[in-house]
Amino acid sequence: MENKREADSHFLCLKNKKGSNGVDIDFITQYAPMYVEAAKLTLRLGAIGILLSLIVGLLGALVQYYKIPVLRRIIAVYIELSRNTPLLVQLFLLYFGLPKMGIVWTSETCAIVGLTFLGGSYMAEAFRSGLESVDKIQFESGLSIGLNHSQVMRYIIFPQALSTSVPALCANVIFLIKETSVFSVVALADLMYVAKDLIGLYYKTEEALLMLVVAYLIILLPISIIASLLERRLRYAGFGN
């Protein structure tokens, strides 16, 4: 009997409902709804941030692709600034720095703007590498059958560029969702916040962290699987002509 208890304390024993040695199922069922709420917040802010990142990224990539003067420099500076500073620092700046200049944003706005600021540059680089991977003569080839500029982009350049960009874009989506774990610094009750809260209140470290890991896995695994399916479908463009 004593040996059995020893073993239990070393392994996560799901049968042991109470006590400090195993996983506390009651605790998990009790607080799981908090994680669900937090996951919704993470997903919602993440989705908005990613969507905006894609838009910023596409615009940034197009500015670079068309080598638009002035704007091109601004984008280059933005990309370096955004990629070489941590999201945590960017959020601090938005949340604590901007109010000093009289600009007060809500936590959610800060989170979305921060994520977009970070994500935009990564997405821009992903789109840019895709656009650059399409041979210039594809463009001429399209023009020579009478397509106009925007038709060439739409039917020839974008489809090929996108299929090259997809792996990087998907990796960015996953990266950005993981980055949302710093949202708690701007007082948002995201997954990380809930986990830290529960640990602080009840010292249920294992349960809280287990639920945290599971929550992120539930969000990210499907995205990861969809991404690899998408990559496989779009691989044709990698084969050259």
Binding site: S144, I156, N241
Partner: peptide
């Protein structure tokens, strides 16, 4: 009509 040295079909 123009035909190029490197064919340049649209690979997708």
């Amino acid at each position: 009509g123009m035909v190029f040295q490197s064919y340049d079909l649209f690979p997708h």
